[in-house]
Write a protein that binds this DNA or RNA. Sequence first.
DNA 1: CGGGACTTTGAGCAAATTCAACCATTGTGG
DNA 2: CCACAATGGTTGAATTTGCTCAAAGTCCCG
Lengths: 295, 295
Amino acid sequence: MPSLASAGTNAPATEATGTASATRSKSGAQSHGARSPRAGAAAHAGIAAHAQTDADASLAGHHASTCQAFACQACTVRGLTICGALEPDDQTLLAGLVQHLSLQPHQSIFQEGDAADYVYTITAGCVAMSKSLADGRRQITGFMGPGDFLGLAVEDENHYSAEALSPTHLCRYPRQRFRAVMQSVPALEQRLYALAADELALAQEQILLLGRKTALERLATFLLMMRRRAQQRGLPTNPLRLSMARADVADYLGLTVETVSRGFSKLRAMGAITLDSAELVRLAKPALLQELSGT
Amino acid sequence: MPSLASAGTNAPATEATGTASATRSKSGAQSHGARSPRAGAAAHAGIAAHAQTDADASLAGHHASTCQAFACQACTVRGLTICGALEPDDQTLLAGLVQHLSLQPHQSIFQEGDAADYVYTITAGCVAMSKSLADGRRQITGFMGPGDFLGLAVEDENHYSAEALSPTHLCRYPRQRFRAVMQSVPALEQRLYALAADELALAQEQILLLGRKTALERLATFLLMMRRRAQQRGLPTNPLRLSMARADVADYLGLTVETVSRGFSKLRAMGAITLDSAELVRLAKPALLQELSGT
DNA sequence: CGGGACTTTGAGCAAATTCAACCATTGTGG
DNA sequence: CCACAATGGTTGAATTTGCTCAAAGTCCCG
């Protein structure tokens, strides 16, 4: 599949790739019928083409460093992300490389197998990392939100795809130059090492969930995790905004959309949660969820 | 469960914890009946007590550095592990900290929730990292073999357990001192960052497997992965030695022992593999396995 | 040779998937 | 402004995969 993606130039703005939920059986991919017979071709349209930078001209080069630096001063996720770990001088160094991007839901950031030319920091929205099998089954390996760093583990090519799930803002850095800064700034290197360690711990948590938890346990775990994330970022938790579709939750939890939906209904019936809308959840009984989570 | 483990002093040399296979249903843990009613209490016996070092006295301190350095010179996994990335001087630095340990199958190295006092390099054998749920269901998050580094992602306490699956030799370093060396030796830091990145990529591969692959696909993927590992280490691949029990394979693949066994039988029936013994597999048709692996 | 641990095989069952229909929300065009 | 199509979510029924429970079969070690 990676090879198929290489020709990616432009695709219709509305493609189904992002929402074609994975299915468990090998024959499942076709069964979703009308949806995107060319799954995998994806919305690989070059980001630059779609990019709507805060200062659009900045994409042409990095002459806009002062302007960018100013934007960084005002950045709302500064404390959460890598910039917070840096001295002012080093921040300027990074600010000289940065490009700002805006993405719509379902827009691809990069695809499994692509050359890893950039690394990213997310300033707003929600991004999914995912891997797929040849027949289209998709597994989301993680969600990232404001403050998260994207591109940690990359070598020369990406081992996973990344896609915006909600309207998203990114800071993008050319990978080679970022790497150079990283090697000259020990604080940055250490910060990234710590981030990698965190991400690894999360991945192991996810492995436990996928390998050993029941559908309901997965869902309860997921909701509690989303709440913790929101708390860490100072986002509202009492209606908790999921920022993703059921299909994405399903692809994250290794389930089908239907099972996820049934799970939500069951949790609602138990009084554990309330739904303002499909995306806005109230965790009425966190203790019950905790118990249901199996952990 | 972490709190239960804290009192760990000595346990019988033969405990069942390591082999009590996880089960999917919440009630499953008890259903295995006679096996280890005190699951979770584990073989937490201090390693030092069981340790049979190559030069036993070394445990008392680190005065044996020259001796250890000599051992390191002869080390068979030097090229694979962190030592290979170091200057001779830095190697001596590490050699001054090292302690050699030998473990029997089922012996615990550390437990989820323990203080992370050491990091390890594996020189021989096979180690499983695992996480468990409250009711005893266990998930193995990864296997490590000769050359692998254990303790990458740790903060002050371990997020997972580690246990020897076959007779195993380890190099152990006090974590704080290792950390100090790490921070003074950029090459080491970068090597560990690279290892963390590799481990993360493996974890994501595992997430895809657990979330979206069928039992047979998991097994095929597993066998190919084990073969790749053996190749990387220059170990024999034609009878490929698994170095672990079916129960461990099951806990790694998110399945039950029975399903794993059926899978092996099915692969055998298809002619994809041959079994010299339960632990010695011949991959008769790697291409078929590749196809079956779903990737 | 005998005992125990591990592995394999079989039969029935249950959780989650598949397939299918229906409902709700949203945006569009008449 | 409302009908209506489209998308996403929910619910139901049948099916399937993998699990549970049970019983043999193997292998290893003393």
